[in-house]
Write a protein that binds this DNA or RNA. Structure first.
Lengths: 255, 255
DNA sequence: ACAAAAGTGTTGGATTTACACCCATGA
DNA sequence: TCATGGGTGTAAATCCAACACTTTTGT
């Protein structure tokens, strides 16, 4: 088939963001309220158009900064991760069903962001209404009654994008050190365990968990400090080590 | 930021295919020779434009059929998998670096296809020049000398897309039953083992492999027949069972 | 003293690995 | 009979789940 650059069908390309964090022992996602039709007033995932000369990942990072003030840090530049609450960013999947946007043909490249709990309850930036909502309430709203009435079904196909992102996060922390992206720069083993418990929605044995993560070489490096911010006996503080793969993987208990 | 549908930057959206199969104990990818500039005469991954009213996965399936005559079979319709050599198709990733195509801004949604070894050595269809090339020769051509001079570096960023697809296939057969997609409808345990060995490039213990795959409930279902097409003692024939997840996973030996 | 969270030790069961050994066919 | 691949048995090493038990703080 000969290639005719002037005859390609025109598409709009956007990035949508599944921004996840752990707050109060629950997995939460960032949602924004739409200011214009379609789906005006409804909640949606943050996102926006890719600019004409902008890389996809750069567009996702830009939108992330505009909505939350976060900065993604994929290649961890030296000690930048200490002074700045960075976040993990990766491409999730692309959604391009012809009628997913009633106005025009839009292909959206969704990205997944894992961020530590932010000091600001409501993320700042130029976002109109933005809030954290627990993913259980967001994902349950399709089938069951309105558990959290404030956020109904999300706009467009964002419920599915969110579900895909949550599933990706749940499976990826099994075999990688990605769960540390939910933690502040320095954290305890117990705090890391509560991340796993929140993301998976299960209870883990603290003793076995401790042995597992401290026994994997390169996964955690002790900083020397301790803290009692969780109460009880002082706990050692750790930073994420260089190891990005967790082998053997963390085992997710049966549901 | 107000939404102006008439002002979005125009993008071309394509699908590119990483079609993998196992031939003669080697993992091979389908490549086509480009007939026009840019990269005229160079080899590339098969692909093409997404039509104005076409789903992304449908576009990938259509291109697959045009290039190979294969049909994807994601939702395995009853016994269709028996009479037709189906193939596994899934979305891989999206590539949209601004200058990846010198002519215009092109965002390509790459898909991964795993297919059984086809009876036709050179895939038919409307493809000009199409051939299978071993991924080791394709991926080695960047660094080392031209091991297989006929296929040099691939056009555009297709070397990277291919590498991502191969890595996805290698990791996914660890914990899923996806390796059966490389096999004909009925196959032996030894044939399945040779798929793993070709994809991973390692040797596996035939006895332990046999116990592992036959001992996982729902993974393989015996058809009752036997074959001696590999020589030696007749081997039982199996079909892929309903189980799509392999737990505990197949362990990939250290390299 | 007590509660709470952090850690260590130990034991039984499951899984993996390595390899000895037997089975059924074609040449 | 021999080569070839298919398949079963078994013992050592390893890994994981469960839980008793000790440590160190705040109240």
């Amino acid at each position: 088939m000969p290639y005719d650059p002037s005859a390609f069908p025109p598409f709009a390309v956007t990035v949508d963001l599944v921004v996840l964090t752990v707050r109060k022992h629950a997995l939460c996602a960032l949602v924004v309220r739409r200011g214009e039709p379609p789906f005006e007033g409804q909640w949606a995932l943050p996102g926006g158009f890719v600019r004409a000369d902008e890389d996809l990942e750069a567009a996702a990072g830009r939108e992330l900064g505009e909505e939350t003030g976060l900065r993604s840090q994929e290649p961890a530049d030296d000690a930048a991760s200490v002074r700045d609450p960075g976040a993990h960013l990766e491409q999730l999947a692309t959604y391009g069903t012809p009628d997913r946007d009633p106005r025009m043909r839009v292909v959206s490249v969704a990205h997944l962001v894992l961020a530590p709990d932010l000091p600001t309850p409501t993320p700042g930036g130029d976002a109109r209404g933005a809030r954290w909502a627990s993913v259980t309430s967001l994902l349950a709203s399709e089938d069951q009654g309105p558990e959290d009435v404030e956020v109904g079904p999300l706009a467009f196909d964002h419920d599915r994008i969110l579900a895909d992102g949550v599933e990706r996060a749940r499976s990826k922390i099994e075999y990688s050190s990605l769960a540390t992206a939910f933690c502040p720069p320095e954290f305890t083993v117990g705090e890391l365990r509560r991340v796993y418990e929140a993301v998976w929605g299960v209870a883990l044995d603290p003793r076995n968990f401790h042995r597992k993560v401290t026994g994997t070489p390169g996964f955690l490096v002790p900083t020397g400090g301790t803290t009692t911010r969780q109460g009880g006996r002082p706990a050692q503080l750790f930073r994420a080590g260089g190891a990005t793969l967790l082998n053997p993987p963390m085992l997710r208990p049966e549901v």
